[in-house]
Nucleic acid binder design. Structure first.
Length: 271
DNA sequence: AACCAGGGGTACC
DNA sequence: GGTACCCATGGT
């Protein structure tokens, strides 16, 4: 089917913005995304049109929500005040980025894996995890992200063998916290960001940064700001170490994403 | 509060 | 092809 998206939408920038690790570019104008048991091939067909290899029903049920198409990102960008010179520049550069609404369980595990790894290394580990423990996606060559019970069946040694290192016990603990109901990700969707972050930090290996990523990319929240090394550099180099996010309120997480994308795309300036 | 923890990318030589 | 440094950090 063909879809028209008039608001900001750049699959390439979304993939390169370090929020999803299973999306990839296949050619200059075609992209692949995976969520749950769904795989999507998306090809740019015109100025603001794309060809998607899924039914109309699947687009509406799965992908509209996944790409957060209900939110007006053009308006978010335009609400950035000119006084914030860096963010005005970063948002113009990152026009097309959206905050994906991904599966919170997948975000929890993925961002536990992410600690002290670079993005290509994270992708590789996540892919190995899917191939080893996930269910095959019907009719496709790819594998779904493993469910909590599938990961809970993994031993620490198996996980270490996938290159997960010291994160292996963290992943085992996260799976058991979710399986036991000690942490309910669905329930956290109805809580405040602060409550959700506090709750997530009960899981071993989950600090404030990883918890913020789960909220931002998996729980549909747009105010949390995960502070990693790149955002730290932006704060230090562009804002004198003071955080510029307060003025952005509920859109602070989106603003953060433009800043992150700008920094990693200009890595030489920020090291 | 300094220090440590897998291992793959990356820039240099 | 070797090597030194870096990486969407958190625990001790």
């Amino acid at each position: 089917m063909v879809i028209r998206i008039e608001d900001d939408f750049s699959p390439e920038k979304i993939i390169k913005s370090g929020q999803c690790f299973r999306g990839c570019g296949l050619s200059l104008n075609s992209f692949r995304f995976i969520t749950g048991r769904h795989e999507l091939f998306l090809t740019k067909a015109g100025e603001d049109t794309y060809r998607a290899d899924c039914s109309d029903a699947e687009w509406k049920e799965i992908w509209e929500d996944y790409f957060d198409l209900g939110r007006n990102y053009t308006a978010v960008r335009q609400s950035i005040p000119a006084e914030d010179v860096f963010l005005t520049e970063a948002a113009a550069y990152g026009r097309g980025i959206r905050i994906l609404r991904q599966d919170p369980w997948e975000m929890l595990i993925t961002f536990i894996i992410s600690q002290r790894k670079n993005i290509p290394a994270i992708r590789q580990c996540v892919e190995k995890l899917c191939r080893r423990y996930g269910a095959p996606i019907s009719g496709r060559k790819e594998y779904a992200f493993p469910e909590p019970d599938q990961l809970a069946a993994a031993s620490q040694q198996e996980l270490r063998a996938l290159g997960l290192g010291y994160r292996a016990p963290y992943i085992v603990d996260a799976a058991s916290a979710i399986l036991s109901g000690k942490v309910s990700l669905e329930e956290l969707k109805g809580r405040s960001p602060q409550e959700a972050i506090d709750n997530l930090q009960q899981i071993r290996g989950v600090g404030i940064k990883v918890a913020s990523c789960v909220c931002l990319f998996g729980l549909g929240m747009t105010s949390p700001v995960p502070v990693d090394v790149w955002i730290r550099r932006v704060l230090d180099q562009k804002y004198g170490g003071k955080n510029p996010w307060k003025r952005y309120g509920d859109n602070a997480g989106i603003a953060q994403q433009y800043a992150f994308y700008y920094a990693v795309s200009h890595r030489d300036e920020f090291r």
